[in-house]
Structure formats: C-alpha cells, structure tokens
C-alpha cells in the first residue's frame, strides 16, 4: 500500500495547488470588476455635476452674450440630449456632444471682456473647466481599470477561470473625435 501513497499524495497536492490558483485568479477578477464599477461611478458623478452646473452658466452668460444665441441654444440642446439618452452608448455620444458645445461657448466668451471681468463667471468658469478636467481624469482612470479587467479576462490561462464564471470584457469610454480629446481650451486668466 505504501507504494500507492506517494503518487496519491502528489496528485492531491497538485489538485490543491490548482484550486488555490483558481481561487486567486477568481478573486483577482472580482477585484478588477469592482474597480471598473467604482471608477465608472466616479465618471458618472462628474458627468452629473456638469449637467447640474449648466443652467447656472446659461443664466449668467445670457445677459452678456445676446449675439451668441445659437451657441447658447446648442449647449442647452446638448444638455437635453444627455438627459434624454436611453442606452449607455447614446449617453456617451450625448456627453461628447455636450463637451464640444461647452468648448465653443467658452471659446466665444473670450470676445466679451465684460463677461470675463464678472467674478461670478470667473468662478463658474473655473468650476466647469475643472469638472471637464475631472471627467477627463476619471475617464482616463476608468479606461485603465477596464484595460486591467480585459487583460485578465482575455489572457491565458486566466481566461479559463473567467469563462467558467462568466466574466466579460468591458467597453472603453473613448472620445471619438480627436479634437474633443483635450479639455476645452479655457482661459483661466
């Protein structure tokens, strides 16, 4: 009997190592998926904050920029599109549109010295520009967590465990238009 004991022990040991490895990979996948969720929540918070800041901005700017009715309406329309977006894909599309519309608004505001001198506008501008930055940075981090998860899900041998427990790859939050990739050019002076 003793001659059987050794191979049995070795096999049991190997099985134990395999199970331990599987648990490790599984936990890593769960952690990666949770990080993706958390980082998306951060993006979402900033997008909502921007959404809430816009009515205030329009109110402040309206009096000064009577000749820019079209630009202002574009911002309001882009905001409405965000509010009305149904799917996640539509939402991201609409958010990109809002970024662009706001960028144009700040660009034309350069031509209104009275507006730029207003303390209210200056602080709103810092808030919105910073929110725009925060969206960018939160997106940057979100994409990193997605990349981390996708690597774990798709690369061998982790993909075996991922397949067994139905872990899927997540989609990146990309800004398609190259011109929108940077935060709108806003002067802080």
């Amino acid at each position: 009997m003793a001659f059987l004991l050794v191979p049995v022990l070795v096999l049991l040991g190997l099985a134990a190592v395999l199970v331990m490895w599987g648990i490790g990979v599984y936990n890593g996948l769960v952690a990666a998926r949770n990080r993706v969720k958390e980082s998306w929540a951060q993006v979402d918070v900033q997008l909502k904050r921007r959404f809430d800041l816009i009515p205030n901005l329009i109110e402040t700017v309206k009096g000064y920029m009577q000749h820019e009715r079209a630009t202002l309406e574009a911002v309001t329309a882009a905001r409405a599109a965000v509010g009305g977006a149904g799917t996640q894909a539509q939402r991201l599309e609409a958010e990109s549109g809002l970024t662009a519309a706001l960028g144009r608004l700040f660009a034309v505001s350069e031509a209104y010295p009275d507006l730029k001198a207003s303390a209210n506008f200056a602080s709103l501008q810092e808030e919105l520009a910073s929110t725009e930055n925060k969206i960018g940075f939160a997106r940057q981090f979100y994409n990193e967590t997605v990349m981390n998860l996708n690597n774990k899900v798709q690369m061998f041998p982790g993909n075996i465990i991922a397949g067994m427990f139905h872990f899927g790859a997540e989609t990146f939050f990309e800004v398609k238009d190259e011109a929108q990739r940077e935060a709108p050019k806003v002067s802080f002076s």
Binding site: E126, S130, N133, F137, F141, F188
Partner: peptide, 18 residues
C-alpha cells in the same frame, strides 16, 4: 482655495484614489 481644491480633486480622480 477653490482652484487648489479642484486640482486636488482632479488628481484624486486621475490617481484613482477612493
């Protein structure tokens, strides 16, 4: 210090700190 605060918030997001 609104701007300093905003910057710290921005970098908290970029660093992915909770």
């Amino acid at each position: 210090f609104p701007q300093l605060f905003n910057i710290v918030e921005e970098m908290t997001l970029a660093a992915g700190l909770g």
